[in-house]
Design a protein around this nucleic acid. Structure first.
Lengths: 334, 334
DNA sequence: CTGAAAGCGCTAACAC
DNA sequence: GTGTTAGCGCTTTCAG
């Protein structure tokens, strides 16, 4: 059996309240006893039982994190951010990978409810009414990372996707490209899809390149889909000299396709990605991309959640962080 | 406030034991009451409090998972495996990323102890005596995934690293390569380093290519180090026509270096990786590599842990899973 | 400064 | 079948 407060009390020859006191406010116990207690704690490797504590405090000091796809490098960064913030704040973290499955996410919320997590951060996913209702029904505070909600008033941290996409496309235009395509996220199951699309359109429009507006194919988060979408894109529009990919993973798929077709990148076609994953600089060619402060997004999200939990509200409802264009090898002047 | 068993009992007009019964063995309660209870549960969104339950059962139905580097795709796969197994087994999972920091790992064990996890899986890390002592001191059962221990008798699941490395090198030799180098893991902080080194040596020896035995440089888990190590390797041995990399991430670093030096892969140098990460087939060129059953390793590890927790021991102490050579584009006949 | 005792929410005997 | 009750391990009044 694991040792309990009673074991410690007995070994130190004091009452359990005294043991409790040295664990929580050591100064309220006279030194001689305190030392005996500490000694016993050490000997017995005593750790207060979190269940018993949770029952009293009605807090688990645990946060939940919901992510759509753990095999996507993007989330590795946010996880690290959230986890580091948790360490700083004295929380544990329960990370759950939903594989983009609604039911699975919903059932994780049940788990969170049962385990009494103090709050959850929902990363990069649309806040569907089912999610909202359930979370609110369970009275679990939550925040959105790399996402936001227009419908509900929920704290969120993300970048300005529209502006970032605009910057990427503008960069391509200023490089002299006139025939520009895009591999985007499906609008109906992604939160970043619409704003990045808008940014693409705005840049095109501002520079009088409206003819490109329809040169878009959509993919579904993974490399393979982007590969296929690129095939469709170039079948329909073989004269493209640049493509804006709304994710680095898409950019890799696009470049792979082009490579298989013996089309040089950046020689014949320039490609710009989005996210600046760790892979972006490992890929050949190294990806020109929009850098998101991924780690910071996660870190900030956890801080915001903590603020929400402890004060009941947050200062900045919808927070935006800075993005940055990183020019590497996959793009070139036309 | 979240609703408790008492709220439900009151609303349904029964005693709390009846509520408890419908939650745990529904059939022991007469239908009419059961329905009223279920109705109340629904209405109040009642979830039994895991703290209270844990206090009684002395089980948290939670497992801990310790991984060295969440930004390494390898772990994404094992996490998914472990997590899926946990869902099947009715456990929650607490994933902790140690960033290869000993103290951090140790402090996660404290957290696990406090939260009373029922067991932990330690992935891909050497079982240092400090880890062992602490885990055993806290009486937490644990298993090793992609690792093993000669010193201690701890259940483990992994592949046969020596044989896998041997296969990779043999493949290169049979392709006609005679000048073969290796980028390995440092032996002092990696569990797979020594056996993969042994496999390399055995293949070389068996085929009379002992002259290559010293053509090894070591790197430290990440791409950048492998890039640097490759630089050193080719500086010392410019005539190499093949290199065996003990990780796909290393293979990417090696290929990147070669590319920067205008050395063609596989035209002039063949490269074989190890792991078969998702990236292996996205990279250009697609990586020839040793496939590990990563997901299954995680899944099996969790099952083994469950076996250990529930029965007190495991059938197969040190389990090996199958590896497989996958030939893609980064290798070619000499 | 310290001990006794109540009680957090739940389960599991134990009566009825 | 169902209600009553005694804890599980801990914190926190409340006395002293």
């Amino acid at each position: 059996m694991k040792s309990t407060i009673r074991d410690v009390a007995k070994m130190a020859g004091v009452s359990i309240s005294t043991v409790s006191r040295v664990m929580n406010s050591p100064n309220s116990v006279i030194e001689s006893k305190r030392e005996r207690v500490l000694e016993a704690v050490e000997q017995l490797k005593y750790q207060p039982n979190a269940f018993a504590r949770g029952l009293i405090y009605k807090k688990s000091f645990t946060l939940g994190l919901l992510i759509p796809d753990i095999e996507n490098l993007y989330y590795a960064g946010v996880i690290r951010g959230v986890q580091d913030a948790c360490i700083k704040l004295g929380y544990s973290l329960m990370i759950c990978n939903t594989d983009r499955d609604k039911d699975r996410l919903l059932s994780y919320i049940d788990t969170f409810h049962e385990k009494q997590v103090d709050g959850v951060v929902l990363a990069s996913d649309i806040l569907y009414p089912e999610y909202y209702d359930k979370l609110v029904g369970c009275r679990i505070p939550f925040v959105l990372v790399s996402s936001h909600s227009d419908e509900y008033d929920i704290p969120s941290v993300e970048i300005d996707d529209e502006a970032a996409a605009y910057d990427a496309v503008k960069f391509l235009i200023e490089l002299g490209h006139k025939e520009i395509g895009m591999i985007g996220f499906n609008h109906d199951n992604s939160i970043a899809g619409p704003p990045r699309y808008e940014g693409f359109i705005r840049a095109l429009t501002e520079f009088g390149l409206e003819r490109n507006i329809e040169k878009i194919k959509y993919a579904n988060h993974r490399y393979e889909h982007a590969y296929q979408a690129t095939h469709e894109l170039f079948t329909d529009f073989p004269d493209l000299t640049a493509v804006f990919c709304v994710a680095d993973e898409f950019a890799m798929g696009t470049i792979s396709y082009l490579k298989d077709r013996n089309i040089l990148v950046p020689g014949q076609v320039s490609v710009v990605g989005f996210d600046n994953l760790r892979m972006a600089s490992m890929f050949i060619p190294k990806l020109t991309t929009i850098a998101q402060p991924i780690y910071e997004l996660g870190y900030r999200g956890a801080e915001k959640l903590h603020e929400l939990i402890t004060t009941g509200s947050v200062e900045l409802r919808r927070e935006k962080m800075e993005h940055k264009l990183i020019v590497r090898e996959s793009s070139r002047e036309k």
